[in-house]
């Protein structure tokens, strides 16, 4: 649109500004360490945004320096209730919102203690019929995510082993999808940096216990309007997507000579700022989004096809704020091979 008075900076310029500003105006140390998200389960950012968070089929396991893994994931999510602030409600204007997502991802062992990941999901959203709003859904490629995971601790004990890992991730939209089109937006529209710490203990009976914390820095999403309300007027198309902390706790077990992995998890995420969805109004990228989610996950490696595996998972958001009351079911294929000697 014709911005005739203000010259608009580009998306990269303004997000870089935000990043630099927050570095310079450093506001104080983080008092807590953060949280994370689960493997395979994409963060539920704003309503139904999904992101890859440097997941690997088995989070605390590192791939060897010559290994490469390809994952093709599909999942389906839906919700017909959501939290407007803390009020759980339905809304016949949108009826039930469905989201289908397909994501190819690659994981590469660079060194035994350093892995690289990249992936980008394709997402499609729509409402079920009948609905009162008659809105068109949205679809497209969402955000490219890349991540590096480093194992800084790997200690053997008599009765088990302890590993510690750290992940730095970055993601950014690769298409011009509209984040300001809730609840059909396919993503939050903002670049994201994530810093995660992971600790896992595995005992000799192949039970494992994992905890992870992630801090998520998020940039601006660009709306296609130059005014919006966020507890006051904002005369800009740039919407500040709140930063967040997330935590994850996992208990799992390897079975059948490590050919089957089963785990249950809790995942919680909290925005560090943001406004509430206003009554009977759509969500927007500036919202404070909190969720508590539980999930189950399984990964099976075929004995007769070397390197091939299948993952199946299901998770449910059980509590939230400005979040969809959403269930997700997904499955994927993994294939490992040596890409060099």
């Amino acid at each position: 649109m014709k911005k005739y008075i203000l010259l608009m900076p580009s998306r990269h310029q303004i997000n870089l500004q935000k990043l630099l500003l927050s570095t310079i105006n450093y506001c104080g140390p983080l008092t807590k360490i953060s949280p994370n998200k689960s493997i395979y389960l994409f963060i539920i950012g704003l309503f139904i945004s999904t992101r890859l968070q440097a997941q690997t089929p088995s989070d605390a396991l590192m791939m060897k320096s010559n290994q490469l893994c390809i994952l093709l994931d599909y999942n389906y999510s839906s919700f017909d209730h959501y939290w407007e602030g803390e009020l759980r409600r339905n809304n016949e204007t949108i009826a039930m919102v469905k989201r289908n997502s397909v994501m190819p991802m690659v994981a590469i062992g660079i060194f035994d203690d350093l892995n690289f990941y990249a992936g980008v999901p394709y997402i499609k959203t729509e409402s079920t019929e009948p609905n009162g709003g008659k809105f068109a859904g949205a679809s497209g490629f969402q955000d490219l995510s890349i991540a590096l995971k480093y194992r800084w601790l790997n200690k053997q004990f008599e009765k088990g082993e302890l590993s510690g890992l750290a992940t730095i991730g970055f993601s950014t939209p690769i298409t011009n999808y509209l984040p300001d089109y809730m609840p059909y937006s396919i993503g939050s529209g903002a670049p994201e940096l994530s810093y995660r710490a992971i600790v896992e203990y595995k005992n000799i009976k192949d039970w494992y216990f994992r905890g992870a914390g992630t801090y998520l820095w998020r940039g601006y999403a660009e709306a296609e309007r130059d005014y919006y309300y966020n507890n006051g007027s904002y005369y800009t198309p740039w919407m500040d997507v709140p930063n967040a902390f997330s935590t994850e706790f996992v208990v799992g077990k390897w079975l059948f000579s490590k050919s089957l992995q089963i785990q249950v998890s809790y995942f919680g995420s909290k925005s560090l700022s943001g406004d509430d969805i206003r009554p009977y109004n759509p969500a927007q990228p500036t919202n404070k989004v909190n969720i508590d989610r539980i999930g189950i996950f399984s990964h099976y490696f075929f004995a007769n096809v070397t390197g091939l595996g299948i993952v199946v998972y299901h998770n449910r958001i059980v509590a939230g704020r400005n979040a969809p009351h959403m269930n997700t079911t997904g499955m994927g294929l993994t294939y490992y091979f040596n890409y060099r000697k």
Partner: peptide, 17 residues
Amino acid sequence: LFALLFLSSCEKELPTY
């Protein structure tokens, strides 16, 4: 990593008038 963590959540300046 800790240094990067301190890229904290300071509010950014967006025009409100």
